[in-house]
Write a protein that binds this DNA or RNA. Structure first.
Length: 139
DNA sequence: GCCAACGTTGGC
DNA sequence: GCCAACGTTGGC
């Protein structure tokens, strides 16, 4: 299983809204960046990801699961853009802030630190384990 | 709200 | 195919 990270501004689409969608999940639409799209195309059913609040919050607040693999983004007719569906799995017991991640030497290579602007990122197994531990949350 | 970083666009 | 201009992202 692979791990990922999804960024969203909480006032546009936050963790609470994602949770409210329940098991049905929601399209992760609106991505207009090739690298982010390619990451979504690589996702498999059952892969998990961190849900990160950008701009406001600046912390990982929960864990989501891919519940539909890449399909055309319903918010555009442009065939270039695909998206996946994700559903909330569980919240972080303790949210893990960007500052904490930057302060952890073992996470120095994380995309969140290295590729700040990429909105859908891969997370390594090791990074996943470390961040879950920092958040007192089961991996 | 500012602005640096970065991706995309389009003229040549 | 280069690169300047432009738009967007996101931390601060």
């Amino acid at each position: 299983m692979a791990y990922w990270l999804f960024k969203s501004e909480p006032d546009v689409w936050g963790w609470d809204k994602q949770v409210a969608k329940g098991a049905a999940g929601e399209e992760w639409d609106g991505v207009r960046n090739y690298q982010a799209r390619n990451n979504m195309r690589a996702m498999k059913l059952g892969d998990q990801g961190f849900f990160y609040h950008s701009r406001q919050g600046l912390e990982i607040v929960g864990i989501v699961e891919i519940c539909a693999e890449a399909h055309p983004d319903s918010t555009t007719d442009d065939p270039r853009w695909d998206c996946v569906d994700i559903k909330a799995l569980r919240p972080m017991i303790k949210p893990v802030s960007l500052a904490q991640i930057k302060a952890e030497p073992r996470l120095a290579e994380m995309s969140l630190v290295k590729s700040m602007r990429l909105s859908v990122q891969p997370v390594t197994d090791e990074e996943w384990t470390i961040v879950c531990a920092m958040g007192d949350t089961a991996p």
